[in-house]
């Protein structure tokens, strides 16, 4: 039991973080908190992905003391994928933040429900 937890510690933490981020993204009303939730969710996925390539007792795949056998090193592909993922996550976060700024300038609030209510009022006034 404890050994299982020890062996899969990264995965368990990743799952917990994912749930925290996911529920923040969906259920928070404040847009900034939503974006923080999104980032936590992404980080959880990257932790899971990075720990897939990690093998206990091995080192980063950089040739330093001349060992060319594969058993010395960890699997570098997941790390590469995490890098790609981080780039994606950064651009998505930037986009969300820019939209938040625009919404705040227009409606003077960060509460998504309030914004949607104001939009509904706008629409009713137009009709």
């Amino acid at each position: 039991m404890f050994e299982q937890i020890y062996n899969h510690f990264n995965d368990i933490v990743a799952a917990l973080l994912f749930v925290i981020g996911f529920s923040n993204l969906l259920f928070q009303k404040n847009l900034i908190k939503k974006i923080i939730g999104l980032n936590i969710m992404d980080v959880a996925i990257y932790l899971l992905l990075a720990s897939q390539g990690f093998i206990r007792g091995r080192i980063a795949p950089i040739l330093t003391d001349g060992s060319e056998s594969a058993v010395t090193y960890i699997n570098p592909i997941p790390s590469g994928l995490v890098l790609t993922g981080i780039v994606v996550s950064v651009s998505v976060t930037a986009l969300m933040l820019s939209m938040t700024i625009r919404l705040y300038r227009k409606y003077r609030t960060l509460d998504l429900d309030e914004i949607l209510m104001k939009i509904r009022q706008e629409r009713e006034e137009e009709d």
């Binding site: 939503k34 899971l48 939209m99």
Partner: peptide, 28 residues
Amino acid sequence: NNGRAIASAVRYMVVSLVGSGLFLIGTT
């Protein structure tokens, strides 16, 4: 670039990002 369009874009993004998150976990 009016309030309504941006608010619906935010809603679209929130839902979509959950979707791509799930897809990425599946890939992992």
